[in-house]
């Protein structure tokens, strides 16, 4: 409880400082939090069609792009990670692909998918698949020799080997990759919406900027922060449940 207070006091303090400074300075670029909140209220609560028309589609694209990347990344990663040969062929290519700034491919995707949702999904998937894929490869490789031997001796079927041994052994690394990918998904969602669409949080940010409505622009930025915080918190909770089997601390574990 003490820690909770500590955490949020400083946060609240900063907001208050911002509020006072913002009111005193009257700088149009840095409106006080109360104005931002009012703008958000008018924008999203009084006009709920902005939520259904912009925020929800954005979240939908973000989550589906991330989910597609997760499915492809994990399955491919498990296969590549258990074959040194395959990794030798694919490794350098993967390292190169990961280094490509995904927005640079937006023009290509725009033409290939003729704009719209599929182009945005392609951008998100291409941008966020690498952390999942490379972490899964890393995790799948980390299955220790004794577990490999144990599985071989008991001649377990292939699906049990992959789903029952490699996947759980790799899961801590996979979750780490999923978290990185989720925050990247947010970035790419915004990027993909800044071009080639007229709905979504990103496009609304652009509109606000073009109309010199800085208060709304700030509201959009805060919304993205809240969204990122919320998504990360949910994923952490899921991770904690899924990885509950991990030995939590050293003194709980008998060596």
């Amino acid at each position: 409880m003490n820690k909770f207070l500590q955490r949020w006091t400083v946060f609240a303090g900063l907001v208050v400082v911002w509020q006072v400074a913002g009111m005193l300075a009257e700088d149009p670029f840095f409106p006080p939090p109360s104005d931002i909140l009012t703008a958000a209220w008018e924008w999203w609560v009084l006009e709920p069609e902005n939520v259904t028309g912009h925020i929800l589609p954005s979240i939908g694209r973000l989550l589906s792009g991330w989910a597609i990347a997760a499915v492809i990344g994990i399955s491919l990663g498990l296969l590549l990670g258990r074959s040194d040969r395959a990794m030798e062929y694919a490794g350098p290519l993967l390292v190169f692909m990961r280094s490509i700034p995904p927005p640079a491919l937006v023009p290509v995707f725009l033409l290939l998918f003729r704009g719209g949702t599929s182009m945005q999904l392609a951008t998100i998937v291409f941008g966020v698949i690498w952390p999942v894929l490379l972490n899964t490869v890393d995790g799948a490789r980390s299955v220790d020799v004794t577990k490999v031997d144990t599985s071989a001796v008991f001649r377990i079927p292939r699906h049990q080997w992959i789903l029952g041994v490699v996947l759980p052994a790799a899961s801590p690394k996979i979750f780490a990759g999923l978290r990185v990918s989720l925050s990247l998904s947010l970035v790419l969602m915004v990027i993909s919406e800044l071009v080639g669409t007229d709905n979504g949080i990103g496009s609304q940010l652009m509109v606000a900027q073009r109309e010199f409505d800085y208060t709304r622009m700030w509201a959009g930025i805060v919304l993205l922060g809240v969204l990122g915080y919320g998504l990360n918190t949910v994923l952490l909770a899921v991770e904690r449940r899924a990885l509950a089997w991990q030995p939590r601390s050293r003194d709980e574990q008998h060596a």
Binding site: R7, W8, V10, F11, L14, F29, S183, L186, V187, V190, I191, L194, G202, L205, M206, A208, Q209, Y214, M217, W218, G220, I221, L224, G225, V226, L227, G228, Y229, L231, N232
Partner: peptide
């Protein structure tokens, strides 16, 4: 911690207009 956890997820591209 709360400040950092809130700032971190704000995508840098969202700050482009600002």
């Amino acid at each position: 911690r709360a400040v950092i956890e809130f700032l971190r997820p704000i995508p840098s591209v969202a700050l482009i207009p600002l």
